[in-house]
Amino acid sequence: MDRITVVGGGFAGLTAAITAAEAGARVTLHEAHHTLGGRARTAEGAYKTNEGPHALYSGGPHWTWLKQRGLLQPLAPIPPRELLRMRFHHRGALHRTPPLALLRLGRHRAELAPVDQGFLSWATGLVGPAGARAAAHYAAVALFHHDPGSLSAAFVQERFRRASSLPPEAHYPRGGWGALIERMAGYAWDLGVRIETSTRVTELPATGDPLVVATSLDAARSLLRDETLTWTGGRTALVDLALTTRPGDPFAVSDLDSPGWIERFTAQDPTLAPPGQQLIQGQFPIAPHESKADGVARAERLLDTGFPQWRERTVWRRASVAANRTGAVDLPGTTWRDRPAISRGGGIYLAGDQVAAPGVLSEVSFNSAIEAVTLALTSSRLEVAR
């Protein structure tokens, strides 16, 4: 029987462990933290926050995979009435409908957008400079980057279309990502996966068994002592708020004047906060020279516009910065194929959201985990055959 070691107990690591165990391998998973989840970890306590939106896109490959294994439910879909409470901050004012340019651009297929041209330049030729800037800023909800218009047109357009699709692709695990991670961990345990938490791996195992490193690129670079394991990411200020409930609050506010997004997550999942309170998160990408305070200031300005009296209604608040933990971004002239390869040689394989695999947000982690295990098992069995 094949033996596989997985380092990292986030979404990628658990996907890899389950895939390997289902193929008959004996799997040991190591997680440095005392709980599983990685970036998909949900905070403990009264306010169940996540490191960014905890949405699953129904058009992604992991949707069917999770559903087949009974791991997808329960979900918290966006109520149709809440979609009517979507607001767009454009030219200094709130609007109920997006600019016509966004609707026009949404009809263009992502595969027809050029790889080697920036999104802003390409979209300007289709909808004009103002419409292109608004679309780039809207797409930031799935990019976490301070300058979406500078990224590859093909890369941004795929995310723009997925994020703006109707009906929405975004669905939310009830209870946050952590509830999904718990179901995946239980499923892995039932398959016989040995899960060891609070176990930080600092040296490569000497067993000779295949190793799947399902961590951030920073952690993988340190463990594998491979300085080539880098890729462009983003920095985002995250502002979490609990407000007393007020009828008429918007479901979400998209800032089309600069990258930024505020969402009321209890609109679809009231379990994320105590009764009578609304859990809201703002995500505001910040440039390399900007600080967390800069992102928080932009969040407060948008809150002033969209959530009346939010300061007086605040019962809990937290701000943080997510740096290089929000997935890969592709500059003009690059695609996912140019990111660090999954197979690193010597029986070592990478999985995570910044490696060479297609998909949007968590789909990259899923696809890379499946590919890493497939390559590991194929290589191992070829060696045995010889």
Rank of each mutant, 00 (worst) to 15 (best):
Val115Lys: 02
Tyr138Pro: 00
Pro167Ala: 11
Gly92Ile: 05
Gly149Pro: 00
Leu94Met: 09
Ser165Asn: 12
Pro168Phe: 07
Gly128Trp: 12
Ala153Tyr: 00
Arg104Ser: 09
Pro173Phe: 01
His108Asn: 05
Lys67Gln: 15
Gly45Glu: 06
Leu100Met: 09
His95Lys: 10
His90Trp: 13
Lys48Trp: 04
Pro168Ala: 10
Pro74Gly: 14
Ala113Tyr: 00
Leu105Ile: 14
Tyr57Glu: 02
Gly149Val: 00
Phe155Glu: 01
Ala135Tyr: 01
Arg69Tyr: 15
Ala154Gly: 13
Val115Ala: 07
Gly52Gln: 01
Pro167Met: 12
Pro129Trp: 09
Gly125Asp: 14
Gly52Asp: 01
Ser165Val: 12
Ala136Arg: 03
Ala43Gly: 08
Arg69Ile: 11
Pro99Met: 14
Arg41Tyr: 09
Gln68Glu: 15
Asp116Met: 02
Ser150Gly: 15
Asn50Phe: 00
Thr42Arg: 02
His95Ile: 05
Gly60Ser: 07
Gln117Asn: 02
Gly60Pro: 01
Arg162His: 11
Ala139Cys: 10
Arg159Pro: 05
Ala139Asn: 07
His95Pro: 05
Val156Asn: 01
Leu72Tyr: 13
His89Val: 02
His95Tyr: 12
Arg96Pro: 07
Tyr47Glu: 04
Gly92Pro: 03
Gly118Met: 03
Arg87Asn: 03
Ala163Ser: 15
Glu169His: 14
Gly149Phe: 00
Glu51His: 04
Pro168Trp: 08
Lys67Arg: 15
Leu126Thr: 06
Leu72Gln: 13
Ala132Ser: 14
Leu75Lys: 11
Val127Glu: 00
Ala101Gln: 10
Gly45Phe: 13
Tyr47Ser: 04
